[in-house]
């Protein structure tokens, strides 16, 4: 059936449901924005309304100029960026191996990787802290990158493997017969075709690392190595919660994630439509 053949009520229902879903999913974000621009004196006095009678950017100015937030922000960028890059590099190689090679113990390796995804990370906090502190990896961004990389590699490997599985083996075989080594065939033929997969993996790992709180909180106790989720908690003081500033910081924290996805969305969309062109 072509789309024009469908009736108007169908489309009203179609978009109505979509709009409902989008409103539901985005409402918390909207509330974040609303609170972040509400001056403190109106926050509790105005009751529940969709937009404050007076808005201001005072919270933003404060967060940027008078708090440690820019530092947290920079730390988060470094940690998430390095984690995403490291994980994607490792996952691209291991995913390729998983997809193309049959080797002894492959089943065991897959099993072990699955097991790491099965139990709650809280269990690992104490042993990892014990391991890291003599190595000087607590209170350090490197320590966080190592932990995040370790936790994200298994899933990212499976993700990359599924992308490689989607690329016919014939292609690198043709390249190898054309005179390329396997690694060159991987680099020149397979990788360019996996860009959507790489973008998806980068995006996934980046956001996972960006919002990670547990280890960021447990392994780091000094402000100079804190990431922004930990930083957000600093707006909760003993006696009150500074909602306005916290929300402003939250909005600011969304920016890099949005930029990042804007950057890679070209590849993501291509990835989603890639299957549609074939045949």
């Amino acid at each position: 059936m072509t789309s024009s053949a469908r009736s108007t009520p169908y489309w009203i229902l179609h978009y109505g449901l979509l709009a409902l879903y989008v409103a539901f999913a985005l409402f918390p974000l909207y509330w974040l924005l609303k609170v972040s621009v509400t001056p403190n004196n109106l926050l509790y006095s105005e009751g529940i309304r969709l937009w404050p009678s007076r808005s201001s950017l005072a919270h933003y100015t404060f967060v940027l100029a008078h708090s440690d937030f820019p530092l947290f922000f920079k730390n988060s960028l470094i940690v998430s960026g390095s984690t995403a890059a490291t994980v994607t590099l490792i996952a691209a190689l291991s995913g390729y191996a998983m997809s193309r090679f049959d080797f002894r113990g492959k089943m065991w390796l897959v099993g072990l990787m699955l097991i790491t995804q099965m139990f709650p990370l809280v269990m690992l906090v104490a042993p990892i802290f014990k391991l890291f502190s003599p190595l000087g990896l607590t209170n350090s961004l490197t320590g966080l990158v190592i932990v995040y990389t370790a936790f994200n590699v298994p899933f990212a490997t499976f993700l990359m493997q599924s992308f490689f599985d989607g690329i016919p083996k014939d292609l690198e075989e043709a390249a190898m017969i054309d005179g390329a080594s396997r690694f060159r065939a991987f680099r020149q033929i397979i990788l360019p075709l996996t860009l959507p997969g790489i973008a998806a993996t980068l995006g996934f790992v980046f956001t996972a690392a960006w919002s990670e709180l547990l280890f960021a909180l447990m392994l780091v106790s000094k402000a100079d190595a804190s990431t922004f989720p930990v930083g957000l908690l600093s707006f909760v003081s003993k006696f009150s919660v500074d909602f306005g500033q916290m929300m402003a910081a939250g909005i600011l924290a969304l920016i890099p994630a949005c930029l990042f996805f804007l950057l890679i969305q070209r590849y993501l969309v291509r990835g989603l439509t890639a299957g549609a062109v074939k045949g």
Partner: peptide, 30 residues
């Protein structure tokens, strides 16, 4: 011997053309 060192050419049933390269680049890759 690795395939690349055997100096043979192969035509696949699926053709196995490199999708991201032009016809010219496909043909000149080797």
């Amino acid at each position: 011997l690795a395939p690349k060192d055997r100096d043979i050419a192969m035509v696949f049933q699926s053709y196995a053309l490199y999708p991201h390269m032009t016809v010219r680049d496909n043909m000149s890759y080797s």
